[in-house]
Simulated scan of single mutants.
Amino acid sequence: MDKFLKRKSTIDQSSSSVQENKVNDKENDPLKESHIQLEAILKDLLFDPTLRPKINHYHPNYRDAIQRFYLQKSCCQPRNHAFPLTKFGKGYRQFNPAWFGVYGDWLEHSVTKDAAFYLYCYLFRLAIISQAGLSFRGHDETKDLKNQGKFLGLLYFLAKHSEHFKSVVLKNALGNLKFIAPVIQKDIVNIVPNETIKAIIIDLGDDIFSVLIDESPDGSIKEQMTIAIRYVDKKGHVLEQFLGIVHVSDITAISINMALESLFCKHGLSLSRLRGQRHYRASNM
């Protein structure tokens, strides 16, 4: 048989298959694909503060690069723009472009909305506190105390290390615009989860999802339930996202269902897109 049929070398076959696998690996390299996507995002980033998507709108893997990009690109400062007059009471006011020279490293202006913005608030906000799950307020926020809580502590730290920041916050703030009162801090705490859930709903879009419910009584043994949704994002990743804790009068099926519908209605979710439910410690379901 060897006279008529030439044997193929097994070494050649194995080497060729290895080369093909290497070529396929290069073509399907997830790091290369991610880098290409990031370059496309950076190329299309908007300069006007009003038109920019929020930082949490972007994938977590890209946020650091986007923040660095905006820091290196400098602020949106249309110095030659003819700023319009706006009526305030009996007089008219307009944005003063001379402020760009005074607060050049953080002050921005949106031509679209005719409004001023703070670059660092857009990039970082209070992510340091909220992402770490730390409390904002201290036990005692008296002026002379060294430990006044995380929120005031961060403000003092920024003021100490930035002359521009120091000139507009705390005792140097205009009038009563310090925004450090307990009510203001509570408003900030409430804004953080609302913005987070809004980003989750946007990521979900009009796709179907399932819901996960668990019993979570607090220290006073009040009935509560934690609610999360499970869905597949646009990249094919299975995600479980926490929506919140809801108080219920009891753990009957009717009460749980009413609380679930109320939460869905609040965030614009439809039961028609619900494809599955999983309940922990809820035998009556």
Rank of each mutant, 00 (worst) to 15 (best):
M1F: 13
M1P: 10
F4I: 14
F4G: 00
L5Y: 14
R7Y: 13
S9M: 05
I11M: 02
D12R: 15
V18H: 10
N21I: 11
K22W: 14
K22L: 12
N28T: 11
K32F: 12
H35P: 13
H35W: 13
H35G: 06
I36M: 04
I36A: 00
Q37R: 11
A40T: 14
A40W: 12
K43V: 11
D44L: 05
D48Q: 04
P49K: 03
P49A: 05
R52V: 10
I55R: 04
H57N: 07
Y58T: 06
H59W: 06
D64A: 00
A65P: 07
I66P: 00
L71E: 06
K73N: 07
C76G: 05
P84S: 05
L85N: 08
T86I: 15
K87I: 13
K87E: 10
K87Q: 08
K90R: 12
G91P: 15
Y92T: 13
F95G: 00
N96L: 09
N96C: 05
A98Q: 11
G101M: 11
G101Y: 14
V102H: 02
S110H: 03
S110C: 05
K113E: 15
D114P: 01
C121I: 15
C121V: 15
L123H: 04
F124W: 11
R125M: 07
R125E: 05
A127G: 04
I128F: 14
I128T: 11
I128K: 12
A132C: 05
L134A: 05
S135W: 04
G138I: 02
G138E: 00
E141S: 08
T142K: 02
N147G: 02
N147F: 01
K150L: 03
L152F: 01
G153F: 01
Y156A: 09
F157W: 03
L158S: 09
K160C: 03
S162F: 06
K166R: 09
L170T: 08
G175C: 09
F179S: 04
F179W: 11
A181Q: 10
A181H: 10
P182D: 10
P182N: 10
Q185E: 06
Q185T: 14
K186R: 12
I191E: 04
V192T: 07
V192Q: 07
P193Y: 13
N194I: 14
T196S: 01
T196Y: 14
A199I: 10
I202P: 01
L204T: 12
L204G: 06
L204D: 03
D206Q: 02
D207F: 12
D214N: 04
E215C: 00
E215V: 04
P217A: 09
P217W: 13
I221L: 09
M225P: 10
I227D: 00
I229R: 03
I229M: 04
L239G: 06
E240Y: 09
F242S: 01
F242N: 01
G244D: 00
V246K: 07
S249I: 13
I251K: 01
I254R: 00
M258I: 15
M258Q: 12
A259C: 07
S262N: 08
L263C: 03
C265F: 15
K266P: 15
K266C: 06
L269C: 07
S270A: 05
S272W: 05
R273T: 06
R275C: 06
G276N: 00
Q277K: 12
Q277E: 08
A282L: 13
